[in-house]
Design a protein around this nucleic acid. Structure first.
Lengths: 261, 261
DNA sequence: CTCTTTTATTGATCTACATCAAATTTAAAC
DNA sequence: GTTTAAATTTGATGTAGATCAATAAAAGAG
């Protein structure tokens, strides 16, 4: 993994033009805004409170040949030092349960937060892994609590943000748990990720699917073979189209209908 | 439904001696304690901040014959006025999703909280239904925010409590979602409810199962027939014993082993 | 107590998804 | 570019759990 704290994008190929999310469309806004506004004293602290970081799946030169690390942004059970907002790319969140079985508990797209649910805990609840070359905004918890003293509205915003996030996460989880059939589940998932991406991309029907089939299947609790068959079926039924990593939802209505079953 | 604000227990039969949870074993302690402690000014407010309420599944005399309401403590989407701690009995939490499909999202036992996750929202996230004759402690949010001004530690406790609860709920949800086979799921569920009841009853292997088969099956995402078959199987395999509503876990080790698969 | 209604259990069958296995495509290494 | 490895798709088969149906046991009503 490589963490470079300046915004120079490594390995940028012609078609890989990373789309950085606008601060206006970022969930961290509730925290960043009161700090950066009219209060000059706090504005000064801005530099150490938050910084942009690149996270890329590069092979580290310090490692033995043919071994590359996953691009782990933070690890479950390690001390929590910062919370994050995704600027570009996709992250997967993995959690080991008490028995050591690992599960994918969610994905995060630009403008969405990571680790905010552990803000008042000592350690991270889950690990975050970058899928491809990503970037994040990092907000240090020490600085955050220091700033809370100075900006009274920050404290209130923080609580409301956490409650809202927790609620949304619960709803997302429910959308998965409640479904019985696999096609229903997949339809709900595809609609969900496209909708979340639309918030910053503006396009509700097309996304670049950086998540592997294996990871999608794991998240949805089905086998990759089943997922593969379903994706094929959806294509035959003209519900979606897939070329390369480009996924397009062809019939939002039918998919919505399917997801409600 | 009947709400009576004093602690006289209605319909108390010989074997139905309700076991009220001790404040020391209640999750609301973090809120109640700073208020009721040395601060005299806040101690005075205690009366209107929190009160004990009975919730029983009685037939209301104001209703037509043969019609009894469910004992709904609070309803999803209605304005949030208070949060609750279970004193005695069991509650089920139901949530309708956007499409109007209702699911059971959890159960609450003595010492556990309800609606605390919506504390900073406007409305309840789910409905709470009493299973039998229950009692709760009610904490009014208006009074709570008023007290927060007076007791500085309350605010901090509140945030920590919410974060902790959200985390525990997530773990509970994961314990269910991750499992593949139904027996594994049921084993995990039985262990979970017994463990949670043990916190106040002291007995980790026996509980009074007030939840109907239908509700358990619904919560676990299986059909009642499947649940019934599994309970029979577990009995034959000497993993549990069931007489009436009395459930006893006969082999914690085997159940734990089963739940880890 | 008896009668009625609800809830729970057991049986027979059917289907969606898992599993095993092989082919194909895509990506990485050289 | 070529070679190798990994990821994905498609096929054949088995099984867990859903569904339909019929008892059996509790729980209420009178």
């Amino acid at each position: 993994m490589t963490l470079s704290s300046k915004t120079t994008k490594k390995n940028a190929t012609q078609h890989k033009h990373p789309r950085y999310v606008d601060c206006d469309n970022c969930s961290m806004q509730a925290i960043c805004q009161p700090i950066g506004s009219d209060n000059q004293a706090i504005d000064l602290t801005n530099n150490y409170l938050t910084r942009r970081v690149e996270v890329s799946t590069e092979q580290s030169s310090s490692l033995p040949l043919n071994q590359s690390t996953d691009a782990i942004l933070f690890e479950q059970a390690k001390p929590l030092t910062a919370i994050f907002a995704v600027c570009s790319g996709t992250f997967k969140l993995c959690q080991k349960n008490d028995e050591g079985v690992e599960r994918i508990v969610g994905f995060r797209f630009p403008g969405e937060l990571m680790a905010e649910d552990a803000l008042f805990l000592e350690t991270y609840n889950y690990s975050a892994v970058a899928l491809g070359d990503n970037s994040v905004c990092e907000v240090f918890v020490d600085s955050l609590s220091a700033c809370s003293q100075l900006a009274p509205e920050l404290q209130q915003n923080l609580i409301q943000l956490l409650t809202k996030q927790s609620y949304e996460q619960q709803r997302n989880a429910q959308a998965i748990t409640g479904k019985k059939s696999a096609d229903c589940l997949l339809a709900a998932f595809l609609l969900n990720i496209c909708q979340r991406n639309a918030k910053h991309s503006g396009n509700e029907t097309t996304i670049e699917l950086t998540i592997s089939r294996q990871d999608i299947a794991c998240f949805l609790g089905m086998r990759r073979e089943t997922l593969s068959r379903l994706l094929s079926k959806f294509q035959h039924e003209q519900l979606i189209s897939l070329n390369g990593k480009q996924l397009t939802l062809l019939s939002l209505n039918h998919l919505k209908q399917l997801s409600n079953q």
